[in-house]
Amino acid sequence: MTLQKREFIDSLARQLFKATGFITIALLGGIFMLLVYNSIAFFLEVKPLDFFTGSQWNPENTNGHYGIAPLLVSTGLVALGSMIIAVPLGIFTAAFLSEMAHPTLKLVLKPIIEMLAAIPSVAIGFLGIVLIGPSIAQIFGIQNGLNALNGSILLSVMALPTIITISEDAISAVPKSHREASLALGANKWETLFLVTLPAAIPGLIAAVMLGLGRALGETMTVLMATGNASVLPKGFLDSVRTITATIAIEMGEVPYQTTHYFALFAIAVVLFLITLTINLIGEYFANRLRKFDA
Rank of each mutant, 00 (worst) to 15 (best):
L131D: 03
L274Q: 12
E60V: 01
S135T: 14
P48E: 08
L131A: 12
L131T: 08
L213F: 04
I275S: 14
T165G: 03
D169S: 14
V270H: 13
I132N: 02
V232H: 13
P134V: 08
R179L: 01
I84N: 07
M210S: 10
P111G: 06
L27D: 00
L277N: 08
I206V: 10
T162S: 14
L160P: 06
S39Q: 02
E99L: 06
D239P: 03
V46Y: 05
T62V: 13
T192K: 04
G214W: 04
L233R: 09
L193Y: 06
T162N: 15
A295F: 10
G64Y: 04
V241N: 08
A287F: 15
K110L: 11
I279H: 11
L274K: 06
F51L: 12
I142V: 14
A101K: 09
L154Y: 04
I132S: 05
L89Y: 11
T278I: 02
E191S: 15
M1C: 12
I268P: 04
P175K: 00
N38V: 07
H65K: 00
L233P: 11
A207P: 02
I112F: 12
E180P: 11
H261L: 15
S152I: 12
V223I: 12
L211G: 14
I268D: 04
L71A: 11
V130L: 13
I40T: 04
E254D: 15
I275V: 15
S135M: 15
I244T: 04
M115A: 14
G212Y: 12
A226H: 02
Q15T: 08
G133V: 11
P234R: 04
V46Q: 07
L12E: 11
F43M: 10
V174C: 05
T165L: 08
E7Y: 08
N63Q: 14
P120G: 03
I9Y: 05
I85Q: 09
P234Y: 10
T53G: 11
E114F: 02
A26S: 07
G128N: 01
F32Y: 07
P203T: 10
F286G: 06
L149S: 06
G283C: 14
G76P: 10
P161Y: 03
N58A: 15
L183V: 10
A86V: 05
E219Q: 09
G214Q: 03
N188W: 07
G125P: 04
L44C: 05
G54A: 03
I282N: 06
L72S: 13
G204V: 07
G283T: 12
I25W: 09
P59L: 14
G54W: 00
P175A: 00
I166A: 08
T222F: 04
R179V: 01
F32M: 10
L154C: 05
R291M: 00
L12C: 08
L27Y: 03
N38R: 10
A19P: 01
K189C: 01
P234Q: 07
I275H: 13
G204A: 09
H65C: 01
G145T: 09
T260I: 10
V122E: 05
P48R: 07
F140L: 13
L274N: 13
A208N: 05
A208K: 01
H178D: 14
F266W: 09
V122C: 12
L213T: 02
I279Q: 10
D169R: 03
